[in-house]
Simulated scan of single mutants.
Amino acid sequence: IYKHSGELVAKHAFRVASGLDSMVLGETQILGQLKSAVRTAELAGTLGPKLRQLFDASFSVAKFVRTETDVGAHSVSLAAASVKVGERIFGSLSNVNVLFVGAGEMNRICAEYFVSYGIQNISCSNRTLSRAKDLAETLSGDYFPLSDVAHKLEKFDIVLSCTGSPIPVLGKRAIEKAIEARRHKPILLIDLAVPRDIELEASELEDVFLYTVDDLGEIVNDGMRNREGAAREAEKIIVERLVQFKSQLDRKKRIPVIKKFRKRGELIVQIELEKALSSIAKGERPEEVVKVLSRAISNKFMDEPSRALNNDSTGEKLSLSEALERLYGLNKN
């Protein structure tokens, strides 16, 4: 449980929105959750002006961090690494056909990531057909039994396999036939299983790109190192934006005082102006009236600061004196 106060509240909000406080460094899901929470609070009438200002600043910082750093640009999960490898081979993945062999937790996570990435043509296969059906239905995809994989392999551009089988479920010969049927159109095979689901010899085939969980692990580790470097840049940005945010809050705090000061000045001018106009109406010389008016306004403005300087204690007098010198530029030549 976090408990912060003062500027640490803003710093925490900035870091969370930027993905620096997440278990997966740089992930973007938390930002969406924050925005959703703000909308809910707004609808419920519980989002006051101070919280609105804090979250608006947090979202602005998060956007700037992602624009100016690579904190979210590198693959740090097996699912993201799989997509990255697919883009290297096929470019756009919008029209690729993807097969998930196995219906366990790892494949479910990867399949959901693929769908969130905009990949729609998804099929699932599993030894227990009902589990393949359940997974496929959550993804709006197709499904078929594990025994049909070898015969249907040629239809798929990306095959991601993660079963609990003690022996490979995809052999080199079946893959070779699929490549021939595809007229040597590339196929990406991703083996996340331990022990392996796909015979390693399949990597020897032309136009077959085989990646194991170890290969993807290297991509993920590289991504984490890159994100950690970007996170250090992001932390510097947050410190700078925190200073700006504090300055913005301080300016807002001073606005009521400035308004009161201006209102008081306007009231002094109005009162003295009415006196001056009355004097002119009585026939007094305008030149003399203007002199009296200017002295009266000047005295009214200087009276209270002068009395405060004379009456306050030594410490307060010193700070008031410094404030007056700064406000009116009294040290200037």
Rank of each mutant, 00 (worst) to 15 (best):
S306E: 06
V149L: 02
F14N: 03
A150R: 05
R264N: 12
V115R: 12
S278L: 10
T46C: 11
R127G: 04
G315H: 03
A17E: 00
L129Q: 02
Y2D: 11
K172I: 02
E180M: 04
R264V: 10
D312H: 13
P305M: 02
Q248F: 14
D222Q: 14
E199Y: 08
A230S: 12
S123A: 15
A323Y: 05
S125A: 06
H184Y: 14
D214P: 04
A323I: 01
A231H: 03
E274C: 08
K63Y: 04
D303P: 00
S313K: 09
L47M: 09
A13W: 01
S5A: 11
P256Q: 05
V96K: 01
A73P: 00
I179P: 04
P256S: 08
I179L: 11
G48Y: 08
H184T: 02
H74C: 09
K317N: 13
R307Y: 05
R127E: 09
E288W: 07
E233T: 10
L273I: 00
K282W: 03
Y117H: 14
L20R: 06
V169R: 06
A17K: 02
V83I: 15
F261H: 12
E235R: 10
K84S: 13
F14R: 03
Y328I: 00
P195N: 07
V239M: 10
L210P: 10
N121I: 01
C124P: 00
